[in-house]
């Protein structure tokens, strides 16, 4: 498929390795991948605080940058940014092309699970990882079945993808509760947010895993911040790093 990468601002500047892993992985899987300069924020920083008008310019600039290169799908390695980009392109712009663009933006997990299913043989990796099922991916994108729901056959798309890696051991924390990041919540409500992040890291650590693996860089940044502060022996990584390594 012809894929345009959407690299959210946080990934672009703070976690470029996630963008490179995503790029290389998609190329190894046989996709044509392009990246256009000039991408801005999905608007989430502003819209999460209700500032819809303040987000419009950013969302329009992002839409323009993504439309520069024709593609079959836009793929981003960040779940909450995908949720915001889709929603904001729909509700904050009136340009038809932006609306159809919104419909073909996919988060990397859902792209590899639903749109172009991963069927490559993967190299074995001896490692124990604990899945960080962040809320926007879990409850808005349906990357997994949230624990609150009563469903006969629960799904977990991240687990489904990673379980294709031979010898990888996959665990999960006892709860799929929010890690406390929440955008500006992490600063505004520093006490509660910090406590939630600490609790989440403890829950991951208790699984006996060597690494926390997730699909949302902002949540991973928050958990990584606790791991660093407390000197906890846990790697924190985006799942694209794992998949790129074994593909």
């Amino acid at each position: 498929m012809k894929i345009a990468l959407f690299i959210p601002c946080l990934v672009n500047h703070f976690y470029p390795e996630i963008a490179r892993d995503t790029l290389e992985l998609l190329e190894k899987l046989g996709h044509g991948v392009s990246y256009t300069q000039g991408q801005t924020c999905c608007g989430q920083l502003m819209t999460n605080s209700g500032c819809l008008d303040q987000a419009r310019a950013s969302v329009e600039a992002l839409g323009k940058a993504l439309l520069k290169e024709p593609c079959d799908a836009v793929v981003a390695p960040a779940a909450s940014c995908v949720v915001a980009a889709r929603e904001n392109l729909e509700r904050l712009t009136s340009f038809e092309d932006f609306h159809s663009l919104a419909g073909k933006i996919f988060e990397l997990t859902e792209f590899l699970h639903d749109i172009a299913p991963l069927d490559h043989p993967l190299k074995p990796l001896r490692k124990t990882v604990s899945l960080q099922m962040s809320c926007h991916g879990l409850r808005q994108l349906g990357l997994g079945t949230a624990s609150e729901l009563v469903v006969a056959r629960p799904v977990n798309k991240l687990q489904a993808l990673l379980s294709r890696i031979p010898e990888l051991t996959i665990t999960q924390p006892s709860r799929d509760e929010c890690c406390g990041f929440g955008g500006t919540f992490s600063v505004d409500e520093r006490d509660i947010s910090g406590k939630m992040a600490n609790d989440k890291v403890a829950d991951h650590l208790a699984t006996g895993a060597e690494a926390i693996v997730g699909y949302d860089p902002s949540c991973l940044m928050s958990l990584g911040g606790v791991v660093s502060r407390k000197g906890i022996p846990l790697e924190v990584m985006h799942f694209s790093a794992l998949l790129n390594q074994v593909t």
């Binding site: 690299i7 990934v11 672009n12 500047h13 703070f14 976690y15 470029p16 390795e17 963008a19 490179r20 990246y35 300069q37 991408q39 992490s186 600063v187 520093r190 006490d191 947010s193 910090g194 406590k195 992040a197 600490n198 940044m221 928050s222 990584g224 911040g225 606790v226 660093s228 502060r229």
Partner: peptide, 16 residues
């Protein structure tokens, strides 16, 4: 943020 978390260690260059 830094009351209970460290900031990330930023890279030398952006992906762009």
């Amino acid at each position: 943020w830094s009351k209970s978390r460290d900031f990330p260690k930023p890279p030398a260059e952006s992906f762009a």
